[in-house]
């Protein structure tokens, strides 16, 4: 089964965490990535640029609106994600617990619809 781990956190704090190694990631993340890859659980993962660089589009009654920023202002911002392969929801939650962001933000875990 595939799961998406969504990283929600204070993006300002995440920005201030200076990447120190050659991958452009903090050592915490580098280690977590390595663990995912070693376990064959890593499917994909990306970090997003801050919400200030986002744009949102909605169409209502044939009118297209383009807005600056994310679709909602929230205390924690969506800042990155992993797609992982895990045998079940509990195993996916174990990965979420190991994700460095769980210690300063929230990891949301969502099952992917099997195509």
């Amino acid at each position: 089964m595939q799961f998406m781990l969504l990283i929600h956190g204070n993006e300002r704090a995440m920005m201030e965490a200076t990447p120190t190694d050659a991958t452009g990631m903090t050592p915490d993340y580098a280690a977590f990535n390595m663990a995912l890859v070693k376990a064959g659980a890593m499917v994909a993962g990306e970090r997003l640029r801050p919400t200030a660089d986002a744009a949102s589009v909605r169409i209502r009654n044939g009118r297209t609106e383009v807005l600056d920023g994310p679709y909602a202002d929230t205390k924690e911002q969506f800042g990155g994600f992993y797609i992982i392969e895990a045998p079940d929801f509990d195993a996916a939650m174990d990965w979420a617990l190991q994700c460095p962001a769980s210690r300063h933000g929230t990891i949301e875990v969502r099952p992917v619809v099997q195509s």
Partner: peptide, 11 residues
């Protein structure tokens, strides 16, 4: 102008 050109207003 941004609305007409479908571009985010701040951009």
């Amino acid at each position: 102008i941004a609305a007409a050109f479908l571009i985010p207003p701040a951009t």
